[in-house]
């Protein structure tokens, strides 16, 4: 024990350096974790979260009462997570390899610059751009194709619209991370493969993709904890939080955000939030455990 304290004293400068980060993490991330007990309280804003009276599982009764809403938004949340992760990973990797393979490096670089731009546009702005394409009377799509579709009143279109918006916004930037891995591959590997008579496809299959696997695993693992969370702006702003579209567009995060502004009964949102956090944690632990069993090198912890 004495050794421990003398070690800390020796490294006191490092303790001081870590302290501001520690405090910010504590107050911004950890205290709200404790706030999740709200799910078991009869919340009264005047009393605050911790002084409000306990009410056992009463709030979870709302989950049963509003079962349909709850199931719908949970289903949407998971569905979009799976779709975005699957399509996103495939496209990010494909684009990274494609740009890496291009021999006109200058042109590739310029085009990459243009592709990354959408990631820097906030969803508050994106929704106006999407509107310019989809509006009923003035929208570019209806006008240029001679159609008269009212996109904003038909829920069935939105999984596709949201997927396209997501691809548009994130693919360019998403590929950068994989390109950093590709830049690190030893070129002598390719030269050796070429001498052995491997064609481009074989090189990609046996050298490029295997070297991306660790990064893909890390990215997937990191995202698993967010199964129950969504890119709130996409669902809240781009859909204009339109009630008609809720059956395909309402996710847990956009629901909770909406409820904060209505600020009436926080019981149901609190129970939903609790459910969201706990499921996220469990999935993360299960996923990491599985990866550690198969490929310990790629596990997060």
């Amino acid at each position: 024990m004495k050794g421990f304290f003398s070690n800390i004293w020796k490294h006191r400068a490092h303790v001081v350096m870590a302290l501001p980060g520690f405090l910010i993490l504590f107050f911004i991330m950890y205290v709200p974790m404790a706030g999740l007990v709200m799910a078991f309280k009869k919340f009264d804003y005047q009393l605050g979260i911790f002084a409000s009276p306990w009410c056992g599982l009463d709030n979870f009764k709302f989950l049963v009462q509003s079962w349909k809403t709850f199931v719908n938004m949970t289903k949407n949340t998971v569905f979009y997570y799976l779709m975005f992760t699957a399509v996103g990973t495939v496209l990010n990797v494909t684009l990274a390899i494609a740009i890496d393979q291009m021999r006109l490096k200058r042109a590739a670089k310029t085009m990459q610059t243009l592709m990354i731009i959408p990631v820097f546009i906030s969803y508050a702005a994106v929704q106006f751009i999407v509107y310019a394409f989809l509006a009923k009377d003035t929208g570019l799509i209806n006008n240029s194709l001679g159609l008269n579709v009212s996109f904003y009143s038909k829920a069935a279109y939105w999984p596709w619209i949201l997927l396209i918006v997501k691809i548009w916004k994130d693919t360019g930037y998403g590929s950068v991370l994989y390109m950093s891995v590709l830049a690190g591959i030893d070129t002598s590997l390719y030269e050796a493969a070429e001498i052995d008579g491997a064609n481009k496809w074989q090189q990609i299959k046996h050298i490029t993709i295997p070297s991306l696997v660790p990064m893909i695993t890390v990215m997937l693992l990191l995202s698993v904890g967010n199964v129950m969370r969504s890119d709130t702006g996409l669902f809240y702003q781009v859909t204009r939080n339109n009630g008609i579209l809720y059956s395909t567009t309402q996710v847990i995060d956009s629901y909770v955000l909406g409820q904060i502004f209505k600020s009436s009964n926080f019981g149901f949102p609190a129970a939903t939030s609790f459910f969201q956090s706990v499921i996220g944690l469990l999935l993360m632990l299960v996923a990491n455990f599985t990866v550690r069993k198969i490929e310990p090198e790629n596990a997060l912890f």
Partner: peptide, 19 residues
């Protein structure tokens, strides 16, 4: 570990807003 935990578990918007 202290740094990593917030990535696995967090309080969410509602609790954050109240705090």
């Amino acid at each position: 570990i202290f740094l990593l935990i917030p990535m696995l578990f967090n309080g969410g918007q509602l609790s954050g807003y109240m705090i």
